[in-house]
């Protein structure tokens, strides 16, 4: 019985770390005052490009670097269009999603149809490197040890990124400047903060982080390409929702990931739970899996509505979000 819970917790983490990447990446971007709706597309590009590079070189490290660079380039495109060219952020973000997902399928289909075929993951060194490993001692802690400390390296990287980002916002001067830009770019500008440079840098880094999340999803799905189902599968959108849930805090994003992940995992694990506890949880199997799939979106909708009822919960929302900054506008 304990095993079921351990497995459940384990799965929450395994399946939902991409959300953490997507959310922290988006938080970094939104803190600079930009709303990027292109998370889904950015993750898709980071996933497919990173995976292919990793498969080619058989190295997880290369996969991560390339994934980061590829999605960082998407971030560069977004910054160029919205920061330098003052394009509408909503439209640019949505186009990045359309473009990114199409890019994913296009490359995937082209490769699948080619002579060499889509590169397989299983059995490669890349596969081995991305496998879970047990952290000595910690993983031996009863109940929690296995669930928390026997994961692949990317899981830990995601958590570390979230914690570092939290410290960055809270404790450093560049973090303070970044938050100032998100709140009032005019004020930051007048104090000699290079608004455009900050926006570019953070949008690119944030996008790069999202890309890692995409790569993780690809690896986690065994690297198999299906013509009809994108690896990202809406996680980019959930990430945007999670940003609100986390009140723009990377630390709360960790918590949010667990909460959202709980429902997500319920979809996969409800049968196991019902089997173990037929009396108390037997009803779980009666709920269609689609409901669990839709649950993150339903919860976000509810969070959106309830948080708008009181202004307190939105204290982390950057005041200048979604608006472009042009110094000479009067």
């Amino acid at each position: 019985m304990l095993d079921v819970f351990t497995l459940f917790l384990f799965n929450i983490i395994v399946y939902n770390i991409p959300l953490l990447y997507g959310t922290t990446g988006e938080i970094m971007i939104e803190k600079s005052g930009s709303l990027n709706l292109g998370v889904e597309g950015t993750m898709a590009i980071g996933a497919v490009v990173g995976y292919l590079a990793g498969a080619k070189t058989d190295s997880l490290f290369v996969a991560c670097v390339v994934s980061f660079i590829a999605s960082g380039l998407v971030g560069l495109l977004f910054s160029f269009l919205t920061v330098t060219l003052q394009a509408n952020q909503n439209v640019t973000g949505l186009t990045i999603t359309t473009f990114g997902v199409a890019f994913y399928y296009f490359i995937g289909n082209a490769l699948s149809n080619s002579a060499s075929g889509w590169p397989k993951l299983s059995g490669t060194r890349l596969d081995v490197q991305s496998q879970a490993f047990e952290i000595p001692l910690l993983s031996k802690i009863p109940f929690f040890g296995k669930a928390l400390f026997s994961h692949g390296i990317l899981v830990y990287l995601g958590v570390i990124i979230a914690i570092l980002m939290w410290l960055y916002f809270k404790k450093t001067v560049p973090g303070l400047k970044l938050r100032a830009i998100g709140e009032n770019p005019g004020a930051a500008d007048s104090l000699g903060v290079n608004v455009a440079l900050y926006k570019y840098t953070h949008i690119i880094i944030g996008s790069g982080i999202m890309g890692l999340g995409g790569l993780y999803m690809g690896l986690n799905m065994g690297g198999t390409f299906e013509g009809s189902n994108c690896w990202i599968n809406g996680y980019g959108w959930i990430s945007i929702a999670l940003v609100i849930f986390a009140n723009w805090s990377p630390a709360k994003a960790l918590l949010g990931t667990l909460v959202f992940g709980f429902f997500n995992t319920l979809r996969v694990q409800n049968a196991a739970l019902a089997y173990t506890f037929p009396d108390t949880l037997g009803w779980l199997t009666k709920i269609p899996s689609h409901f669990f799939s839709a649950l993150p979106f339903i919860i976000t909708l509810i969070v959106l509505i309830t948080s708008s009822l009181s202004s307190k919960n939105k204290s982390g929302e950057p005041q200048a979000i979604g608006r472009n900054y042009y110094r000479e506008d009067r």
Binding site: L81, V91, T95, F99, V101
Partner: peptide, 24 residues
């Protein structure tokens, strides 16, 4: 057969990016 409807989406994205530049 190698090129499916995703090419249209891809092209659509590129067109919008270019038009945003043109608009600027």
């Amino acid at each position: 057969p190698a090129i499916d409807s995703n090419y249209a989406d891809l092209l659509q994205g590129i067109i919008l990016f270019s038009v945003l530049v043109a608009d600027f």
